[in-house]
């Protein structure tokens, strides 16, 4: 049972600091923060974040122009019937990405995060993306499945969403790939 603080103040007694004990500093309040230099550091962090932002955009513009840009995202819905170990992507039969998941990454996906697995270029016209998922399926069995999507690359950036969901009716994981409009 939780104890109550129940503060009822009587007449105060100022504690006399002992010679010995005063040397042992263990009783300052905890969770205090901020230093005089912190504001300066905060501004520098912001400036750096903005520089990083501009470099990311420049890099995308230069290396992944819209007419050839394709990005692939992975989302996980619930994830009760499948624990993700790795994903491999093939574009038109050629491997373009492979990712092994740490526990922390897999957890971030289950909690609603979405990972951009791949950002790259793709030829205009008809293409096929295939994703191979490896992990543990129902009852901890090794599980390997693939899903594909055909798409036509146009002049605008292409976004493809891979999705791992729980099919509650079949108690099996369900994998899909969709072109995001």
């Amino acid at each position: 049972m939780k104890q109550s603080v129940g503060v009822c103040l009587g007449s105060g007694r100022r504690a006399a600091a002992g010679l010995v004990v005063a040397l042992l500093a263990v009783s300052s309040p905890v969770m205090a923060e901020d230093t005089s230099l912190a504001g300066d550091l905060g501004q520098m962090k912001l400036d750096m974040a903005e520089l990083k932002r501009d470099l990311v955009i420049l890099e995308e513009d230069l290396l992944f122009p819209a007419s050839s840009q394709m990005s692939v995202y992975l989302a996980v819905d619930v994830g009760e019937f499948f624990q993700l170990d790795s994903v491999t992507l093939e574009l038109n039969g050629k491997q373009i990405a492979h990712h092994l998941y740490t526990e922390r990454q897999a957890d971030a996906l289950v909690r609603g995060g979405v990972q951009r697995v791949y950002l790259g270029n793709v030829k205009q016209g008809d293409n096929q993306l295939t994703a191979y998922f490896v992990g543990r399926g129902p009852e901890g069995r090794d599980f390997r499945r693939a899903t594909s999507v055909d798409f036509e690359k146009a002049f605008e950036p292409t976004f493809i969403q891979l999705n791992i969901a729980d099919a509650t009716a079949s108690h099996q994981p369900d994998f899909s790939a969709t072109v995001v409009e």
Binding site: A75, A108, L109, G112, G113, V114, Q115, R116, F159, V180
Partner: peptide
């Protein structure tokens, strides 16, 4: 997708 990508890093 963009927002949740940020969440992926955040988590």
């Amino acid at each position: 997708l963009t927002y949740r990508s940020a969440l992926f890093d955040y988590y």
